[in-house]
């Protein structure tokens, strides 16, 4: 068992446990912090796949910026398990059943996908995730979608400023 395999299983366990804890914690602040742990584990997986740029951007954007804003909002609203209305037990069961159905659909899809049968994830190889190759791909092959998405972000920013000015 190579070190990458050990790391893979460790990160997988960390990601799954943290993701479960996001759902199971009663305190929303804990949920946000567990979600940050999930992002860290996913970033670890990216590094194992030799996609360092993706890993670090995942950390900067999601763990560093978006989750901080989430934490902001939740801390300011001061949600508490005493004051927060709890869903009744039937809602919880219905949610678990429908979520389980969705999971089954995903699992069966992955199992049926012929492209993925009998293949292993390529750990520590491949160069497509390195920043140089990614930059070249984005600014040559995919330059139009890239620029259009930047316009989308600009419009979202302008919208936020307009709402904030009201």
């Amino acid at each position: 068992m190579a070190i990458t395999h050990i790391l893979f299983w460790f990160l997988t366990a960390l990601a799954l446990v943290s993701a479960l804890m996001v759902l199971l914690s009663k305190n929303p602040v804990y949920s946000v912090l567990w979600l940050v742990a999930v992002f860290f584990a996913i970033s670890g997986h990216y590094i194992l796949l030799n996609a360092q740029f993706l890993a670090i951007v995942n950390m900067i954007v999601y763990a560093g910026a978006i989750m901080v804003l989430f934490l902001f909002v939740i801390m300011l609203m001061n949600l508490d398990k005493e004051t927060e209305p709890q869903k009744d037990i039937w809602m919880k069961i219905a949610g678990a059943v429908s979520g389980g159905c969705l999971l089954m659909v995903f699992v069966s899809l992955v199992k049926q996908a012929t492209e993925m049968t009998g293949k292993e994830a390529l750990l520590k190889t491949g160069t497509i995730g390195l920043i140089e190759n990614l930059g070249k791909a984005l600014f040559s092959d995919y330059v139009v979608p890239f620029e259009i998405s930047s316009v989308l972000f600009l419009s979202a920013m302008v919208g936020a400023v307009v709402i904030g000015k009201k």
């Binding site: 602040v29 763990a63 934490l71 920043i131």
Partner: peptide, 24 residues
């Protein structure tokens, strides 16, 4: 690492958590 500068940036943005969690 070939993303050294971004790494510094990511860790700097993590520093906010210590302050926020402690304060809350």
């Amino acid at each position: 690492v070939n993303i050294g500068m971004l790494y510094v940036f990511a860790v700097v943005s993590m520093g906010v958590y210590g302050v926020m969690i402690g304060g809350w």
